[in-house]
């Protein structure tokens, strides 16, 4: 178990490093941000001075080493636009992003799991059709489109919810639904198919032949076994929600990290883009690692086969 844990941690560190390399060089493919940061009227010397001060005139590998070294010391550099440490800006915005992603995930689970179980247990029923429809819609409707439609219907036409911001407790509802809808679709589908599959297992037939009630079979055997599959999917979905809220946060002007990232990308605010990408990747990787470890603890097959 220790060996497994160690190898996963080392893998994760390499992965994080890989993400850093990719982000660092991809961001720089778009040229240096001098033309955006310095007024167009500014004389050439001032542009050069800015480049010099920001270190953009040095060779890329050296810039990267500096960047990686600074990160090890916990220094993510200053945002070019905000002229503040990128880390401070991120910490300001982080809670809102976690709150939104968590709410979205809860929404997805609360809707998806019961429908998936009932539908999977009664294939062909009305609930099953509903589940399959939700699964299909959830996976095909683009969330930014859904976001706009939700605003149009529930904020503009009905006036039930605010159209943007995080002013009151109900502000989270529309963004969470828009963000969690895709995950909900995924979860409905997976719960349903897991339940369907388990229903045909030998141990279910055995349980049935022993005369155990349908409800007890469902609760003790089907759901328990299905939940094993769900745990890993849910954790992947959570990391999607944390990292994938860029458009949703922007549309709802939700004061989170995704909204900040959108503007940082627009303005080619390198240090901020890098720092946010690092943080999001860090959470995703950490979440994956935790899930793997938890999984290995629950299911011995995993830790032995790897």
């Amino acid at each position: 178990m220790q060996r497994y844990l160690l190898s996963r941690v080392i893998q994760s560190i390499f992965l994080l490093f890989g993400v850093l390399v990719v982000v660092f060089f991809l961001v720089r493919l778009t040229g240096d941000p001098t033309s955006l940061m310095v007024a167009k009227e500014a004389p050439a010397e001032q542009r050069e001075a800015f480049r010099e001060a920001m270190g953009f005139n040095r060779p890329l590998p050296i810039q990267f080493l500096d960047f990686a070294g600074d990160i090890l010391r916990g220094d993510f550099g200053n945002s070019l636009h905000f002229r503040q440490p990128a880390l401070d800006l991120i910490l300001e915005r982080l809670p809102a992003t976690f709150y939104l992603a968590t709410t979205a995930l809860l929404f997805a689970i609360v809707i998806a799991v019961p429908i998936g179980i009932i539908g999977g247990s009664n294939p062909g029923s009305a609930m099953d059709s509903l589940g399959r429809a939700l699964g299909l819609l959830g996976q095909t409707i683009p969330n930014f489109w859904l976001a706009l439609i939700l605003i149009l219907i529930f904020a503009v036409n009905l006036g039930w919810f605010p159209s943007f911001g995080r002013d009151s407790a109900i502000s989270v509802v529309l963004p969470a639904v828009a963000l969690g809808f895709g995950s909900m679709g995924q979860l409905v589908r997976l719960t349903r198919s897991a339940v369907l599959e388990i229903r045909n297992e030998d141990y279910i037939r055995t349980a049935r032949s022993k005369g155990i009630s349908q409800f007890k079979i469902g609760a003790r055997h089907v759901f328990r076994n299905a939940s094993l599959a769900l745990v890993s999917v849910i954790s992947i979905q959570y990391s999607y929600l944390l990292g994938g809220s860029i458009y949703i946060e922007t549309i709802f002007s939700w004061p989170g990290l995704g909204n900040l990232l959108q503007q940082a990308v627009d303005g080619r605010d390198f240090p901020l883009v890098q720092a946010i990408a690092f943080f999001i990747s860090f959470f995703v990787i950490a979440l994956t690692l935790l899930t793997d470890v938890a999984y290995a603890l629950i299911d011995p097959r995993i830790r032995y086969s790897s």
Partner: peptide
């Protein structure tokens, strides 16, 4: 994901 980030960066500006 990181590729997507990068792509957004590329079409950003």
């Amino acid at each position: 994901m990181s590729l997507a980030l990068g792509l957004i960066a590329a079409c950003g500006a």
